[in-house]
Each structure stands twice: as structure tokens, then as C-alpha cells.
Design a protein around this nucleic acid. Structure first.
Length: 863
RNA sequence: GCCCAGGUGGUGGAAUUGGUAGACACGCAGGUCUCAGAAGCCUGUGCCGCGAGGUGUGCGGGUUCGAGUCCCGCCCUGGGCACCA
């Protein structure tokens, strides 16, 4: 027999329902609605030329299931999508082909959109956004200007990764092991003028506010570690050499101050020259050159072998006045703390190694508290454990935590130090020397013009001017007026950066060099005569662009009110939709994207633009789908699976179901092409059960509900219960297992009531929406299925009047009995005694103990 | 080196959080239907053993009537950080 039903044909069903949803605006989020809202967000994709691979729809399927489920639960659901479309690959494609990156980006987006639509995700396409759309990046630029005006953006000469082969600057994350991530070219450090955002001003709040977030612990920990708060003290060491300010160090262990036998400053420390004595000069210079030649990679590679050189100078310990030699060594980093440390070799691993190598004295100042009384073996140095102070005049005997407070207080009283907090977090390097990014809406003017602009009071400027100097000339930053945004990218002839490392925009002199009116924002070519009228100044535009992170820092806010022309979103929509109730995306963004977005969000909250100060209350990371070979999917390995192939062969519903059936959402799991058959068979089975030969309802479906077996009814209610619970907790794999159990039970049943059939199809709908709409319609329901209330389970159907009890003898399973649900231990024991197969184990034995757990186990302990 | 997650059949995974280990699915074997095959359906399938039975959740200990689950010590895999003073 071929089959008794019209075949399940995904290729006709799926496009039909996709058109139906689109034509009926089925997934449009309602503007004003009395319903409770639910906002489910995916991390929007970068539309690469390679198109989607099956990893993308894993997270998207999860959020789609939740969206459809929440709609059936009566929520007004916002489920949007968009494109994070600025970025390096499009730019490199442009360099190679000479075509505008926008052209290529648009083609990629069209391909991504087609692929995503083919999977039947219930996005509200009316709210689609694109970070490269001027109407979008106008607000990215606007946010930047708010940061600028509040002193949170500044320029600084910064060492950056420069790749000579690619002729471009690379971000840290684009450099792997000293090579460019793309192309594997060597990179080098170059100091270039950069825009930097003062994220460190928010370090404390970014850290403290993590606490209230419903995020994976590992992600919170990663952000904590990244922010890297440590409490300690700043200590001022006087210098023997006249005419120098104190040498300031940061330490987390001020209690060990009297054990400091030397100081170390980083090779880049500004005091290196000043502290180097004449006779040490040659050695120091040689060492400094050697350190400078090391790449960061080498410097960490050689982490174990410490090296350094004596400066010839001494500092004075502020507490006991001892002379302390000052060394220069690259194990001290200029980028952390003050770039100088007090070295306590007795109680620090690194200082100890260094002291050993250069035969510097080691003075122990902490001793385990019970050392002297108990005569425990003298601790090996370096000793970093708990204890009390020794050899510390005035502080000996104090517990180190007490000494820490006391020494810090004494230093403070003398003006020689104070308690401080240090962060590993650095300010955010925000500029890129690239074409395909948001132009930074700043122009540069000279000092006199800046002064007059400031005096005019017509332009909002930061309290401290942002400026830089080049060839002896100072340039001052002036914002482009908000209402002239967006500042669009000029057309350029070449997308290659200049050899000096400047952005390709620098080559567009007609765009860069201008007469500028700061109040109106008007500008014209500098090559023509200065226009008449008030306020015109000679200016040149900033040529750096923003990094890809910029557009993704706030995109979730735009979805709420995507067409708003006067604000990033209206206050009403921001209040109604709030922030996403669930945010799903890869763990690779655990730190940077999520930290940057939190930073911007807090700034926008502070200036009254947003009613909430954290963007993502609940976060979930989907795992990675590996190739068949267990390796990460990549073009090079040839193990990439395209969703297109699966949609064609098995359909979107099957792909969605399989992605969810593979394992827990958060797990890393390999793709197995054979496994997909299992879920496909499941869908065909469901189809066969409900659809008859003619394509109408199968004869098995009965309008007489009493024809349905009690067992099937019970299984249905177990399934409603489990699927509901699992969807709420994003455990889709077990939800699908349960639906398979139902289908298997159904297959063995003679009849199913129409209402039960409908309920089951409703459960399946979020997972496999196309087949479910089709079945729903065949069963007489009106599309779309999601507007019909989610089935509720009847708990009374799940209680049984008997219980199955596993019987163990001495912890070993020996059989099971079925007894009334209300049975107590005595009744259970009686039942066991009448069951020969179990009772035989008890003959002649003494019962020592009986453990009875109702409905679970009866364990009889015998001697 | 430090921090985190994880290790369960031939495979992906499940296990009510201390109570029948292996749900569901893949694969495999046998059967049914068929001229034949595909699909479907039925049965079996952790390992050892003909069997009774034994044994089994990375390894070694421990707690408990009872441990995949809790504790101690290792090993391995994946992720993050890495001279952070």
C-alpha cells in the first residue's frame, strides 16, 4: 500500500502559508494593544556573501517557537529582524571588485532575506532595519554626538594593529596570533590618532548592574573578568632625585608595603629617562629597544622568563623611609594601574622570580597566623596565603586585612597615598580607518575659530575641548548639528586606505576640506571662496568611521519605532515595549557587543532618552552546530550545510524541528544528515494520521469524543503539560520527544476526537508552523492557527488511582508491583509478600529496614 | 597557570534534581506486505553470558537503604582569561 492519505508535500504547503502570513500581516506587532507585550529578539546577522548556514536558524527557530507560542498565549509579540550590514568583508569585496560596498551588501541582504523567509520565521517584516541605511545610521551618529557632548568621546594617539598587506587597521579581535584573521597576513603596531569612548566612566555600574540580570552565569563572569575591578591603594614613593614628582604605584596589598625591596616601572613609563642615571643609560636604552621590538605575542610567550634592568635610581618607602632600587622591566605593563609597582618578592610570584634572577633581597612580612604558636614548617616563599604581619615596625602582629586598612589610612593621613579601585577595562577604541562604516559627524577647526564658536553659544560643545596636534597645529573638534544628520558617505574612487593609514575617506578632498557653518551645519568646498555671512569657518571633516559594534549597540531600540524621524524611538513606544524579554544569540558576543550595548544604553538612560537602564534582562546563548565531522562549519573544510538544500529536500518544518531535536539549545552539537529522516518521518506520520485519502480529514478523527481511548486522552494531556513547560524553559528537544510519543500512541489508537486532534496540532504549530496550518485547516480551523488560545491541560486526567512501585532488595531492583495510589508502607509490603518473584528473595531473611517512597520505590534491607 | 562548562549505548541525546539508567530518535538485525523494491507496520537492540545471573553513566575513593545526580582526589574535551601588581 502506498499510503491511505494524500501525500505530505512540503514544497507546496510551505510557500502557500508563507504567502498567506505575509498577505494577512499575521506577524505584525500591534501598535496600541491592551494585550501584554512580549519582545523576543535575535542577534541580527551580518549578511555575508556566503549566505546562511544551518547554525543561523538554530537560534532563530528557538525564538520563533517562543514568539508563536506567546501569540497563542495572548501576547502582543514583537519579533523583529534586521541587518548588521557595515563591516570589513563588504569593504574588501569592494576593494577587489571596485563596486560600491552598498551594492554588494544589498545583494547579500536580499539573499539572506530570501533564505530566512523560506524558513517561515514569524518576523514582523514591516520593522526590518539596516545599519547602513542613512535613516538608521543617522541615529547611530546622533548617539555618538550625545557621547561627544558629554565628554565621553575623545581623541588620543593609540597603538593599533596595522596590516600592510590589507592596507588597513584591524581591531583586536581581527588579529589572531599576530596575524590577520582574514588572509593570515602579519600585522604590526602603529600609533595613530583614534577616537576613544570613555566606557571606563561606567565601569562600576556595568559591573554592579550585572547582578540583577537573568543571564548565563558564565557570561556574567566573563564580563566581570573583563571589567576586572580590583580594590587596593595608590602609594606615593618619594624619589631621591630632585625635581621629580612622587612615583605612584597601584597595589592590592598595601599591607606588604614594608616588604617592598624594589620598584619596577614599565619600559614605556614616562619616568624611564628621568630616572636612568648616566652610567646605566646604555643598558637601559638597549633593554628598552629590546622590549619595544617584542610583539605583544612574544611578550606573553616569554611570560615565564622575567627580564629587566636597573635604572640606577632609588625611591623612598613612605612608611619606613628605606631606599628602594627602581628597576625597569616589561613584566610591568603600562596599560594597567600606573605602569609602576612596588615589588614584594616574599609575597608575589612574579616579583619573587625577578628578585631571584637579579639577587634582590627578599623580606618576609606576612606569616601564617598559627606559625609561631604551632611550630608549623616555615612557609615557602613566595607566600600568598592568609596571615599576620611580621618585620613591619608599627604593624607587626596585625592580621593582614587590618594592616591593609591601617597602612592605607596612615598613607592617606600623610598625603602619601589613598585607597583606590582599578579596572582592567580600557576605554573603547572607536574609530576605524575604513570606508564602509558610519562617518563620525565631527569637523576639525583651528583654535581661534573654536574659541569663537564656543563664544557664540550656538553649538553644544563638551566641557573640555577635544583636540589633537599635527605638525605643530592644534585642531579642535566641533559637532555637526543634530538636525543635519545623517552625514552620508561620499563617493570615492578607491576603497583602499591611504598609505599613511588614513581612511579611504581622506582621499576625497572635496568632502574633507570645507567651509563650514557650525550653527547651521552648511558646508561647501574649501576650494571655492568662503561664503559671506556669519560664522563660516575653514574646517576639515573627520575621516575615520565607526566600528561595526556601533550599529549593533542600539538596534533593538529602533525596532520599537523603526520609522520615527524625530527620535530614535518615541517615548510611548519605548515605554510600551520596554527592552527585549528574551535575547538569543551566540556566546561569542558575551563580552564586546553585550558590554558596548549596555554602555550606550546606560548613557542614553542617563540623558533621559530611555526609561530603562539595562538593555537585555534575559539572555540565552544557543550552542554551535558543528559539521558532520565534529568540526566547526567552514568553507575551507567543506562541511557547511546550507538550509536551502534541506528546505528543498525535506522542507522548512523538518529543518526547524530537526535543529531543535538535535539536543539542548545551549549545547554544541554535530549535524548528522541521517538524523533528519527521523523528524521528517514524524511529520509524515502526523500527516497520515490526520489526513485521509482524498486530502480531507482522516476517518480516524471522530466528532464523537467518547470514541477516543482514555489512554490517548491522558497522553494528550501529558503532552500539553510537557510541551508547555518545555517551551517556557527553551527545552525544545524534549518537547519534540513528547510529541513523538503522542504520535506513536495515536498511531496505535483506533480513534481520536476532533478536539484532541486540534489541540495536538496547536502544540506542534510553533515548531512546524506550515504543516500545522495545513492540518488545522483540514481539521476545520480558521487560519492563522496562532490566534487560537493555547491548549490547557487538565491535571485531573493525569492523576492515577494506582501507583507503580519499584521494589528493591538491598538497593537492587528485583521487580515492581502495582498497588492503589493511596497504599501505605504496610500495604506495599503485603503486596510484595504475595508476589512470588520478589517474595522469594525474602524467605529466611531478616528485614532490617524498609524505605518506602510513595509512587517511586520500596527498598527492603535484609540481612 | 587561573576561571567556567562538560564527559551516559555503535550515534544524537533523556533521566521528575538522591529513587526503574538509556525516554525519543538515528543506525543495525529479524519479520510482515510486495513479482520485486521503496515507504509503512511489527519485534529486538548497553555490555558479558546458552542460561540463571552478573555488570554498567571518564578513572579512583567516600557519604547513603539507594549515587549519572552529593563530597574528596585525578584524567580528558570544549570555552574564556592570561605577567592585571
Amino acid at each position: 500500500m502506498a499510503t491511505h492519505s494524500k501525500d505530505y508535500d512540503h514544497s507546496s504547503i510551505e510557500p502557500r502559508w508563507q504567502s498567506f502570513w505575509a498577505d494577512n500581516g499575521a506577524f505584525r506587532a500591534e501598535e496600541a494593544s491592551p494585550k501584554p507585550k512580549y519582545y523576543v529578539l535575535d542577534m541580527f546577522p551580518y549578511p555575508s556573501g556566503a549566505g546562511l548556514h544551518v547554525g543561523h536558524p538554530e537560534g532563530y527557530t528557538a525564538t520563533d517557537i517562543l514568539s508563536r507560542y506567546k501569540r497563542a498565549q495572548g501576547f502582543n509579540v514583537l519579533h523583529p529582524i534586521g541587518w548588521d550590514a557595515f563591516g570589513l568583508p563588504a569593504e574588501q569585496h569592494a576593494v577587489k571588485t571596485g563596486t560600491h560596498p552598498a551594492t554588494n551588501t544589498e545583494a547579500n541582504i536580499n539573499n539572506f532575506r530570501r533564505q530566512i523567509k523560506a524558513l517561515g520565521f514569524s518576523y514582523d517584516w514591516d520593522r526590518e532595519i539596516n545599519t547602513t541605511d542613512p535613516q538608521y545610521f543617522r541615529w547611530t551618529q546622533w548617539i555618538f554626538l550625545q557621547l561627544f557632548k558629554r565628554g565621553l568621546a575623545y581623541v588620543d594617539e593609540r597603538p593599533v594593529w596595522w596590516c600592510p598587506a590589507l592596507k588597513t587597521v584591524l581591531a583586536n579581535e581581527e588579529v589572531v596570533d599576530g596575524k590577520s584573521e582574514r588572509g593570515n597576513h602579519p600585522v604590526e603596531r602603529r600609533a595613530l590618532r583614534q577616537w576613544v569612548l570613555r566606557i571606563t566612566a561606567y565601569a562600576e555600574r556595568l559591573l554592579a548592574d550585572l547582578e540583577g540580570l537573568d543571564w548565563p552565569d558564565s557570561t556574567k563572569r566573563m564580563q566581570q573578568a573583563w571589567i576586572g575591578r580590583s580594590e587596593g591603594a595608590e602609594v606615593h614613593f618619594g624619589l631621591e632625585k630632585a625635581g621629580l614628582e612622587d612615583l605612584v604605584v597601584f597595589t592590592t596589598r598595601p599591607d606588604t608595603l614594608l616588604g617592598a625591596t624594589f620598584m619596577v616601572i614599565a619600559p614605556e613609563h614616562p619616568y624611564v629617562d628621568k630616572l636612568t642615571t648616566l652610567e646605566r643609560r646604555a643598558d637601559v636604552e638597549a633593554y628598552r629597544q629590546q622590549a619595544a621590538a617584542k610583539s605583544d605575542l612574544e611578550r606573553t610567550d616569554l611570560a615565564k622568563d622575567k627580564s629587566g634592568v636597573f635604572s640606577g635610581s632609588f625611591a623612598i618607602n613612605p612608611i619606613n623611609g628605606h631606599r628602594v632600587p627602581i628597576w625597569i622591566a616589561d613584566y610591568v605593563l603600562m596599560g594597567y594601574g600606573t605602569g609602576a609597582i612596588m615589588a614584594v618578592p616574599a609575597h608575589d610570584e612574579r616579583d619573587f622570580k625577578f628578585a631571584q634572577k637579579y639577587q634582590i633581597p627578599v623580606v618576609q612580612v606576612i606569616e601564617p597566623s598559627d606559625y609561631s604558636s604551632n611550630g608549623v614548617a616555615r612557609p615557602e616563599l613566595p607566600y600568598v596565603g592568609d596571615g599576620a604581619l611580621v618585620h613591619s615596625e608599627g604593624y607587626s602582629g596585625l592580621h593582614w586585612s587590618e594592616a591593609k586598612k591601617k597602612i592605607t589610612a596612615d598613607l592617606t593621613a600623610q598625603g602619601k597615598g589613598k585607597a583606590t579601585i582599578n579596572y582592567k577595562l580600557h576605554d573603547w577604541l572607536f574609530s576605524r580607518q575604513r570606508y564602509w562604516g558610519e562617518p563620525i559627524p565631527i569637523v576639525w577647526v583651528n583654535a581661534q575659530d573654536y574659541a569663537s564658536i564656543k563664544e557664540s553659544g550656538q553649538v553644544e560643545l563638551p566641557a573640555d575641548p577635544v583636540s589633537y596636534e599635527q605638525d605643530g597645529v592644534a585642531h579642535f573638534a566641533v559637532p555637526v548639528p543634530d538636525d543635519t544628520l545623517p552625514l552620508e558617505l561620499p563617493e570615492v574612487e578607491s576603497y583602499l586606505p591611504s598609505d599613511s593609514g588614513e581612511s579611504p575617506l581622506a582621499n576625497s578632498t572635496s568632502w574633507v576640506d570645507i567651509w563650514f557653518n557650525p550653527a547651521s551645519g552648511a558646508s561647501i568646498l574649501a576650494s571655492v571662496e568662503c561664503p559671506s555671512g556669519e560664522g563660516w569657518v575653514r574646517a576639515h571633516r573627520e575621516t575615520n568611521t565607526m566600528p561595526q559594534w556601533a550599529g549593533s549597540c542600539w538596534y533593538f531600540l529602533r525596532y520599537v519605532d523603526p520609522a520615527n524621524r524625530s527620535a530614535i524611538a518615541s517615548q510611548e513606544t519605548l515605554k510600551y515595549w520596554g527592552t527585549p524579554d528574551l535575547y538569543v544569540g551566540g556566546a561569542e558576543h558575551a563580552v564586546l557587543h553585550l558590554l558596548y550595548a549596555r554602555f550606550w544604553h546606560k548613557v542614553l538612560f542617563d540623558i533621559g532618552v530611555l526609561p530603562h537602564d539595562e538593555p537585555f534582562q534575559k539572555l540565552f546563548h544557543q550552542g554551535i552546530i558543528l559539521g558532520e565531522d565534529g568540526e566547526k562549519m567552514s568553507k575551507n573544510r567543506g562541511n557547511v550545510v546550507s538550509p536551502d538544500t534541506i528546505v528543498e529536500s525535506h522542507g522548512a518544518d523538518t529543518l526547524r524541528l530537526y535543529l531543535m531535536f538535535l539536543g539542548p539549545l545551549e549545547a554544541m552539537k554535530p549535524w548528522n544528515p541521517r538524523g533528519i529522516e527521523g523528524v521528517h518521518r514524524f511529520l509524515m506520520k502526523v500527516w497520515r494520521e490526520f489526513v485521509g485519502e482524498s486530502g480531507g480529514v482522516s476517518e480516524k478523527v471522530s466528532s464523537v469524543s467518547s470514541e477516543e481511548s482514555a489512554e490517548l486522552t491522558k497522553t494528550l494531556h501529558e503532552t500539553i503539560n510537557k510541551v508547555t513547560d518545555d517551551v517556557e524553559n527553551l527545552r525544545f528537544n524534549t518537547a519534540i520527544s513528547q510529541m513523538m510519543i503522542f504520535a506513536n500512541t495515536l498511531q496505535k489508537s483506533a480513534k481520536i476526537s476532533e478536539t484532541s486532534a486540534r489541540s495536538f496540532v496547536q502544540l506542534l504549530a510553533p515548531f512546524a508552523p506550515h504543516i500545522s496550518e495545513e492540518l488545522w485547516q483540514i481539521l476545520g480551523g480558521r487560519a492563522p492557527i496562532q490566534v487560537h488560545p493555547w491548549p490547557e491541560f487538565n491535571p485531573s486526567l493525569l492523576v492515577s488511582d494506582t501507583q507503580k512501585l519499584v521494589v528493591q532488595i538491598n538497593g537492587k531492583r528485583r521487580g515492581e508491583i502495582v498497588i492503589p495510589a493511596s497504599a501505605d508502607e504496610v500495604a506495599a509490603m503485603n503486596a510484595v509478600k504475595t508476589k512470588e518473584s520478589i517474595a522469594s528473595y525474602l524467605t529466611g531473611a531478616t528485614i532490617r529496614r524498609v524505605v518506602y517512597v510513595k509512587g517511586r520505590i520500596l527498598n527492603i534491607v535484609i540481612a
